[in-house]
Design a protein around this nucleic acid. Structure first.
Lengths: 343, 343
DNA sequence: CTGAAAGCGCTTACAG
DNA sequence: CTGAAAGCGCTTACAG
């Protein structure tokens, strides 16, 4: 198939006995082609295995059929693995291609990568963050269609998709409350991101919905959302006389710290303490013993949605609405939650 | 800069008062240009911020200046994060661009992605695996320059770079032996990959070098390299009368399982048991308590090397040697190793 | 309903 | 040492 010379539109035209103009139109549907002619062309295309050269197409048509995906550690972190996959899948279904790029969190490198993307004439870019953050897309991207993934922005002119942060916490708290817990702690961070504030709102709402009062001292904040922080802050919570019987953690990493703090305090999970995380990181949630019950971020769906919206934006800039979407997140039950007292 | 019309070679030619031929040559160096002329051209290029259009360049020159990076979960796994970064950095330094693509381990999707890459005329591809595996690059890639990353092959005609698996285990065992351990267990898997066999060879070699005898029962194999497996297999090792005082684990995930098994057996790390892993996964090695001493895979360097070799291959197919490189891997000391007896 | 021709922005023989 | 011209493989006005 891919041997020797690449088959060009000219070869197809010759084989079908028509002009290259007709081949082009038969393929693109840009103008009507007689059914008989069309079938001949399509037959030749099939037979020769012709695929239009995207370079030539891009040069002429001002479109490369390539989408850039730029992330801070997005593609290099397990968090967003499925997001890249979702984006690629959705793009393939619509004849585009996703080129992922990552700056590892370095703004300078990121700018360089974006320049590269633009230079290569990507049709648009997915600007993705690792955890729901408030961002302003770099000025570099000004002339390029952009959709934000797992990030939101003040600029109401750009579409974005993020997890329903409030809902995440509500689901977690509801799950715990339904299991009979009345003292539910919350381990989070002091960082000022939408993820952090949203989940706290959801935590309070969730307690309220369960008819439970918020006890401020049951909310513990660390400066980072790491296992180390979870461990430290968890210890405070668990050493108390009136320790919570369940803890909702900002993420799986902090939950891992809670497991460690529990072990130190000689508490068994879930018998003595129930734990819920957020992220559903295979490497952590599945690896913990017992497995961590956690709220999954629908990364795949976010990537898919974002690509489709971006492609709409590229193909119909005027009629494509600009939306900020919040995606509901499912709770994944493993073994870290049971009734208080281990019943 | 990126406003309105894109600046083309024609604009530069006009500004510099020369032909586009001269601009092209002044930039590429393909033929000599009078110094004065050259400076004028370069001045205009600078002033106008001209960058050749890669699409046009590719169409004419049969080169896209884009490299494909295809992985099985590579880009979507923390393991290889730095690899992508290394590849992108090296490519940027040489005027190329890396488009990463991932099939999430699905062969069909992978084939599709590769087809996309080829269709988009990538100059070559980096074929990367998650853990050092023996592979045969898909036939699809037959006509394309390829370099293997963290994968090796029988075909002596393709260059590859992999971690020095034997050296990894030797380093780990040496570190443990130097700390005074004499009974060093090995927790690994039954999978038949070069990583698995290489590390076992290195384990035996390391013991030998330390003047210690290999005790077969100290080698425990599970079917998968997960935390779960490490936990199960670790329990066997730790319940023995003559349990090892140190365990070298195939990877960080299994080491996490060993931590869990130790906790169950009421053993403290590192006082009662020293542990060494492989991978240096931030999410795990850093998150464990105490931090896990582990051997790091130089992902960044592997990505860099592979891109440079691939670019050499593309630019000078005949003079570029074909090599299978093994990269030495540094041990990263954290808190999981001490002298036996906790001294 | 279809085709000949221009042109996207470059590079590279071919001339001079 | 430099330039005019062909051509990479397409798409899209422009004609008919």
């Amino acid at each position: 198939v891919a041997d020797g010379k690449r088959v060009s539109i000219r070869d197809v035209a010759q084989a079908a006995g028509v002009s290259i103009t007709t081949v082009s139109h038969a393929l693109s549907g840009a103008r009507k082609v007689a059914p008989t002619t069309r079938d001949q062309v399509l037959g030749a295309v099939e037979r020769l295995g012709y695929r239009p050269d995207p370079l030539a197409r891009g040069l002429r048509g001002q479109r490369s059929y390539v989408l850039g995906l730029v992330g801070d550690r997005v593609i290099t972190t397990p968090h967003a693995s499925a997001m890249v996959l979702g984006a690629q899948t959705a793009a393939a279904a619509r004849g585009s291609f996703v080129a992922a790029v990552d700056a590892g969190g370095d703004t300078l490198i990121e700018a360089q990568q974006i320049r590269g993307l633009i230079e290569h004439r990507v049709d648009g870019v997915l600007y993705a963050r690792m955890h729901h953050q408030a961002v302003t897309p770099p000025d570099l991207l000004a002339g390029t269609p952009v959709v934000l993934v797992d990030a939101s922005t003040e600029q109401s002119s750009v579409s974005s998709i993020v997890p329903d942060e409030v809902g995440i916490a509500q689901a977690a708290v509801a799950h715990l409350a339904q299991s009979g817990h009345r003292r539910i702690g919350f381990v989070t961070t002091t960082q000022a991101t939408p993820a952090v504030t949203g989940r706290e709102v959801g935590y309070r709402l969730g307690l309220d919905e369960a008819g439970l009062a918020v006890e401020e001292s049951l909310i513990q904040r660390a400066s980072t959302a790491t296992a180390d922080s979870g461990r430290t802050v968890g210890r405070h919570l668990l050493e108390r006389r009136d320790a919570p019987t369940a803890i909702f953690c900002f993420n799986d990493q902090m939950a891992m710290g809670i497991y460690q703090a529990a072990a130190r305090a000689c508490l068994s999970i879930p018998e003595d303490l129930s734990v819920v995380g957020v992220d559903n990181l295979a490497l952590v949630a599945d690896a913990l013993d017992p497995g961590l019950t956690t709220v999954a971020i629908p990364q795949f769906a976010m990537g898919q949605w974002a690509v489709n919206r971006l492609l709409d934006l590229i193909e119909a800039p005027d009629t494509t609405p600009c939306e900020q979407v919040e995606l509901p997140c499912p709770l994944v039950a493993r073994g870290s939650v049971t009734r208080p007292g281990g019943a």
